[in-house]
Design a protein around this nucleic acid. Sequence first.
DNA 1: CTGAAAGCGCTTACAG
DNA 2: CTGAAAGCGCTTACAG
Lengths: 334, 334
Amino acid sequence: MNLKQFAKELNLSISAVSKALRDSHEISEKTKQMVLDKARELNYQVNPFASSLRKQKSKTIAVVIPEIDNNFFALAIKGVEMIAQEKGYHVLIYLTHEDVQKEVSVTKILQNGRVDGVMISVSSQTTDISHLQGLKENGIPLVFFDRVTEKITAPKITTDDYNSGIKATEHLIENGCEKIAFLSVSENLSISNKRLAGYVDTLKRNKINYDDKLIIRCSQNIEENKKILKKLLEKKIKPDGIFASVESLALTTYEVCNELNIKIPDDIKIIGFSNLRTASLLSPSLSTITQPAYEIGREAASILFTLIEKSGYNGIPENTVIKSTLTERKSTRK
Amino acid sequence: MNLKQFAKELNLSISAVSKALRDSHEISEKTKQMVLDKARELNYQVNPFASSLRKQKSKTIAVVIPEIDNNFFALAIKGVEMIAQEKGYHVLIYLTHEDVQKEVSVTKILQNGRVDGVMISVSSQTTDISHLQGLKENGIPLVFFDRVTEKITAPKITTDDYNSGIKATEHLIENGCEKIAFLSVSENLSISNKRLAGYVDTLKRNKINYDDKLIIRCSQNIEENKKILKKLLEKKIKPDGIFASVESLALTTYEVCNELNIKIPDDIKIIGFSNLRTASLLSPSLSTITQPAYEIGREAASILFTLIEKSGYNGIPENTVIKSTLTERKSTRK
DNA sequence: CTGAAAGCGCTTACAG
DNA sequence: CTGAAAGCGCTTACAG
């Protein structure tokens, strides 16, 4: 069923029907009503490709994320989808699995106009950002969330990572830790930079020896990370505190401590960034910094839609920061 | 940059360039190479809407799910996305939040040809399935996964839910339970039907009184579910076993037991369907039936692509069943 | 092996 | 207020 057939049924021109469907002021109320009724009756729907081709608008956005089996990103997507549905947009999803190469190929594909805008949380490997620059130069509205890069001017939605890094580190120090290992998932550290900076600055301010070897670069692979952590925790003089900058690393630490029979919090204290509902049910319950993932998704989507729909409008802040919350539980108890 | 400009650059016709880009046998190798080189140089990409409009193919599928902040669905999407990326397809995502109305409106939208196929896990409210029938009648390939409906003939990918229902119930009985509550998220029970059937049949086979009041219909709302469970567990003669048919309900049970100071597994034993990585880290560790969510996603996507690309091929089984695994942990210990 | 032309189904500037 | 026509950027049947 296309407009031509539709128009014939009503003895109207194609253009009249098209305009009526889009509620044009050029069309009389009477005609509009007739068209709308008929559309319902025939279950007529505009062909999205013809419409997109003609209007050069897709009513679709892309969300590019490193992983999805992670409560933070799952919740962020929930927020994005909610706003998109309200606005009548469609959401394409692309996973990079923390692989820059995937990220590059996805962004290339997105340059062909398939989407009206892109939301991205960059992979932990990403250092060269020319592929993202390419998107921007092609005039595709771009918004970063959580994993952002300072190298591109675009709206960025994050939590207060520097401040959270400080709070988490102070919390460990207050509970007696003097040798705190920072677990990072990032290969180049430019991503979790701010959390790390908060950690480093807090150590210095508290006159605690700052030791490079306590900044542990983990990978995406759980088994590999276990090995790395085992090496760290089997040492005679092992850390007395762990600051896990992502959820998965806090869990790996728990798993390794169980295997090595290291007692949390007596032998070692742990705090981690996490959106786990089970944080309070763990043995022992896990002290967390929780990011409002759903709100971040909503905010990032809202900003992207503003960018798309009000091009030229420059009231959008480059940085939107939403606060995380630190929740003390047993894993850091003195 | 469009084909017209591209062709002019090379002094070729539009059709020659188009054919070369699609590797047509009508075009000489020399011309193809020239076109391909130029395409790279100009960073030319085919306009997806023009192409889709002409070919009546979108190279896009839709995944419709009730929720995403749930490890099962997050992992399933990961599997789907993996296969889609291999096949050069794009993945649109729609969340229904367990709301049939949302499901209906999403399926309506998907009837306009925007996607080449649909994968759906139906909402727990879904009883009337005419909207899904509508999709099928519109000739849109349809595949169900996990939450399926028997009322429509279409490929269905599930785990061995009936059998898992039996195994979980037997496990509780073996560990001394005689009064086992089945927690369901489904309003009409037609969804988790098979898990429930396994439970009921096992009770009967073991000559345990079958009590309707122990089949608890929960909602989507955590707070509401807490109230329901509190009522159940504050009774003098409360159940001695809980079979949570979805992950979230196992966690709610833990939370309520903590609040009411009910000891797991001494006062009550719990087993639940779950894809939680933290199951083994909980206090006490949670006995689970784990569905291979990632594999289900991959399998469902593969079947959908077969359906799309080989229309008329009828070698696709209506039911694909992938086994779940029961893992005993402390929450069901005698 | 190459090209001219029709047409996918819309939207919109323009004419009336 | 309504309609005829151009054109969005492709693909492909057809002719040469």
